[in-house]
């Protein structure tokens, strides 16, 4: 599922809603669309344990039944963890930061720790990324609220809390900055996973 784009995931979800037989509401207009709003999805290539969306139904249903039916109808790898009633207004704006895990194949934790310290000591870490709107410039450092290397052996594992900004600073932008400050380059593409997202206060404290 890590390689499915956010649009593919959205389509898979819409098919799941129809398979589940849930009476989803449709927008009025020339081309009616199911009323489903997605919060900023994880980038393509990044796995996620914490995506949020809101779905409007035409009739009232029990939360547990909706969760069960959706979960059963969706493909493996898209699991519905919880369903809650949304009193009004989609809470995308309340999701102000994400916690990410990044595994760096072929790099020992000890070799990455100094680079992390160097990065955290920076005031700004300008990076650029080519998007389909052209080259975007952003400050990877100022979006990072916490960053550390997990203790242990094996491949180095980073945990980071990154503020949701526009344009978004993604974990690979932070890796670009790390490479820029200290030449840290993993032997294979890093394995990135979004672990959580939410209001800043609710995210787990970084040790």
């Amino acid at each position: 599922m890590r390689f499915a784009s956010h649009r593919d995931v959205a389509r898979a979800f819409e098919r799941g809603v129809r398979r589940a037989g849930l009476p989803v509401a449709y927008s009025a207009g020339f081309t009616p669309h199911p009323k489903i709003s997605y919060a900023g999805g994880a980038p393509t290539g990044v796995a996620s344990e914490a995506e949020y969306l809101s779905l409007a139904l035409t009739t009232r249903h029990g939360m547990a039944a909706v969760r069960e039916r959706l979960d059963a109808a969706l493909p493996d790898g898209i699991d519905v963890i919880d369903v809650t009633e949304d009193a009004g207004g989609f809470p995308a704006s309340r999701l102000s930061a994400s916690e990410w895990q990044v595994i760096l194949p072929g790099l020992a934790p000890d070799s990455v720790a100094p680079a992390v310290q160097e990065f955290l000591a920076l005031e700004h870490a300008p990076v650029e990324r080519l998007t389909n709107k052209g080259v975007r410039h952003m400050d990877a450092r100022s979006a990072v609220l916490a960053l550390d290397v997990r203790p242990g052996s094996g491949d180095a594992t980073l945990r980071m809390v990154v503020r949701h900004t526009v344009p978004a600073v993604r974990p690979d932008d932070v890796l670009t900055a790390l490479r820029d400050v200290s030449g840290v380059v993993p032997a294979a593409p890093p394995l990135m996973t979004r672990l959580a997202q939410g209001p800043l206060a609710d995210l787990p404290e970084m040790s």
Partner: peptide, 8 residues
Amino acid sequence: PVLTDGGR
């Protein structure tokens, strides 16, 4: 019908 209000 494709969309039903009832359970499955």
